[in-house]
Design a protein around this nucleic acid. Structure first.
Ligand SMILES: [Zn+2]
Ligand SMILES: [Zn+2]
Ligand SMILES: [Zn+2]
Ligand SMILES: [Zn+2]
Lengths: 169, 169
DNA sequence: ACCTTAAATGTTATATTATAACATAACATT
DNA sequence: AATGTTATGTTATAATATAACATTTAAGGT
């Protein structure tokens, strides 16, 4: 029994036909800059570059793949370089870690802190992010029947996205 | 709008006061033996021992902690020893991997194949497992609005269990 | 019992992911 | 400029997982 219509947003959709990833990336970087400015935290050149690399595609990116690219640009790069930047970006919500892939994706809406639910296509590898309050509420309710208080939930769903479903008829 | 009462089971509860873990463990091993027999797969001595070690407590166990114990008993143990046994046990549903902890827990109900939802207490480290069809149905519905077809979902919830909540008043 | 084959385990090496610890550099504030 | 703080550089190592191939064990047919 729902009291009101809960919000359910798609924070990061699967990319549609004609998706301009350049725009997508630029907009993400601009949002990140604005958000960091507003919060008084520093999106340094390195952090910005790591964010850019994470946003290179809509597929989760591995930490060591980022590191390889950083090394091409600056020989002083080492694992801590990338993990520190990722830690910062995750703390600020610019990036989420996909635990089941040990990989990282950019967040489509970092300005409002949240932890979404991720849909991962096993065919194309793309990831979409939802932020669905109904799901959260139902889980909270279920947890409550066990006397459990939720701090944080990780929801990672694997399957086939619409595009890959139609291809594999 | 629910058509029927969906089943919602607690496959593995948080341990209650007076919980006899010896019974809990014995029963898990017996169930595992029966289930393997029924399926025509082999619960070898090694696999049984690994299952026993995973079931050592209700807290997720690390692969290399299992390996350390195996090494005490048999010097020929190496990473593949434990990972192969875990792979078998996971495939048969006797053990689940908690992705967000890279650790493994025993399953309370391996005879029916499933992937549950895990509640992880950040204070005592214990894990409970639910298998809630309502949650699954809601997620399927939400995914469907994006044209996404779910194969498998990972739900790991962190928070405080009832016992730890009352302690931390 | 003997042979054959498949499954499980042993063994060595290496890949992948992540953190510790300490030094230096950049930045902000006074 | 002096100071404290934050970020980055640097070296080393910890923690998690798999590849590849050899050997042993178990199952099934003759
Ligand atoms: Zn894009
Ligand atoms: Zn997000
Ligand atoms: Zn128990
Ligand atoms: Zn289970």
């Amino acid at each position: 029994m729902k009291k009101h219509k809960s919000h359910s947003r798609v924070l990061m959709p699967f990319k549609e036909n004609g998706h301009s990833h350049k725009k997508c990336l630029d907009s993400a970087l601009i949002t990140a800059e604005k958000t960091c400015l507003a919060r008084g935290v520093r999106l340094t050149r390195l952090r910005r570059r790591v964010l850019e690399l994470v946003w290179g595609s809509h597929e989760p990116v591995k930490a060591y793949d980022i590191l390889d690219k950083l090394r091409d640009e600056h020989s002083g790069s080492a694992p801590p370089t990338v993990y520190r930047a990722l830690d910062f970006l995750r703390a600020e919500g610019m990036v989420h870690k996909i635990e089941s892939l040990t990989a990282y994706v950019g967040c489509g809406e970092p300005e409002h802190r949240h932890i979404g639910q991720f849909l991962i296509c096993r065919a194309c590898g793309a990831v979409a992010e939802m932020d669905d309050a109904e799901v959260r509420e139902l889980l909270a309710e279920k947890a409550d029947t066990l006397g459990f208080h939720i701090d944080r939930e990780m929801i990672e769903i694997k399957g086939l996205c619409a595009a890959c479903l139609t291809e594999n008829i």
